[in-house]
């Protein structure tokens, strides 16, 4: 049953992605023909950007073919569609399209050589900038370079495979709803690892069946809903909010106690942003987890532990006292000749 639940969970993410679009910013997944900006945000480059969104903001576009004297309607390639609403809700919403893309795109038809333009990566803008120091982009880059994903750079892997620059929105630090953060982050992984169309662009490996690969995991669906893939698949980092050193699958965490313990690794990963709060609340260890979840072994209650020990001690004490009285009465009854407990 749990296995099927897992299948359904992944199928839900992949098939009914319109329902999770608000938190899953995959490019090119909108089926809407024409979209209006409803964010209320007024970009300083709104009019300038609209020249691009006019075609790239929806699945259908049209242009005037002067040679033929016709207005041609065509479908936009799904990879080239940018959702206005998500862009104007993202961290990069104040950008002009040509801040990152060539000014040459203002020309239509776009010059063919522009397709070969090199894309920026995160560090090109954020690296070495004191304004972004707290986000530790250099540390993230250092982790990424040690991760198993870095080996795929020649195949086309980059920051953008996980973090879409058009839609990226800082999620976990101002979001106390952990379950949304879990869905958001896990969808970044599932976008390739449960979607062979994308997966095959980066590797010749066989298609992965996520559910089957995790058959060993008890309560699989609960784990999938409650923790992120990186909890087990990335090396925990004491300084980074989100670990980026993705380990080879052979090195993934398999020990239950890594999470199910008083010193749970979840406190230094999924709950790191909240862990500055009190570690204990009403006697619960790692109490911040309790807002969204309950982890056996990690959320033991020290008051209950103490009370149970006291009760157990009192019971043993009562039994010990009873035994002493039994021995005494037995000695008394038999005149001290034959001591037995009965």
């Amino acid at each position: 049953m749990r296995k099927w639940f897992g299948y359904i969970l992944i199928a839900t993410v992949l098939v009914f992605d319109n329902s999770v679009l608000a938190i899953v910013p995959f490019p090119g997944r909108t089926g809407r023909a024409i979209q209006q900006d409803t964010t209320g945000y007024v970009s300083p480059f709104r009019d300038q950007n609209e020249r691009c969104f006019k075609c790239h903001g929806q699945s259908k576009y049209e242009y005037s073919n002067e040679n033929l004297g016709l207005t041609v309607k065509a479908l936009m390639c799904s990879e080239r569609i940018v959702d206005r609403n998500q862009f104007y809700s993202s961290n990069h919403k104040s950008f002009s399209c040509t801040d990152c893309h060539s000014e040459g795109y203002a020309e239509f038809p776009h010059p063919g050589e522009l397709r070969m333009e090199q894309k920026f990566n995160c560090l090109d803008c954020h690296g070495g900038d004191p304004a972004y120091e707290k986000y530790q982009f250099e540390e993230i880059d250092s982790e990424y370079r040690q991760s198993t994903h870095f080996k795929l750079e020649k195949e086309g892997f980059s920051c953008w495979k996980c973090h879409n620059p058009h839609y990226y929105k800082l999620n976990i630090r101002d979001n106390k709803n952990i379950s949304e953060a879990v869905i958001y982050d896990n969808n970044l992984c599932l976008n390739c690892h449960a979607n062979f169309k994308n997966f095959q662009l980066l590797t010749d490996a066989m298609e992965i069946n996520i559910v089957r690969e995790h058959n060993w995991l008890p309560n699989q669906s609960s784990h999938f809903k409650s923790v992120r893939c990186i909890e087990c698949h990335a090396k925990a980092n004491d300084t980074l909010l989100v670990a980026h050193l993705i380990k080879p699958k052979e090195e993934a965490v398999r020990g239950c106690n890594e999470c199910h313990s008083k010193n749970s690794i979840l406190m230094s990963s999924l709950y790191k942003h909240l862990s500055k709060e009190e570690r204990k609340s009403n006697g619960f260890v790692n109490a911040v987890m309790l807002n969204q979840s309950y982890v056996i072994g990690a959320n033991r209650n020290e008051y209950l532990n103490l009370i149970s020990l006291i009760i157990f001690g009192l019971v043993l004490l009562a039994i010990a006292v009873h035994i002493i009285f039994r021995i005494k009465s037995s000695i008394k009854a038999k005149g001290g000749d034959n001591v037995s407990v009965s």
């Binding site: 313990s261 056996i296 072994g297 033991r300």
Partner: peptide
Amino acid sequence: SMQYTDRENAAYLMGFSRAVKWHN
């Protein structure tokens, strides 16, 4: 075992994963 096994004493009594299996 499930309640008190920790990362530092992963083999406490019988360990978490074995404890879960046999408990179930």
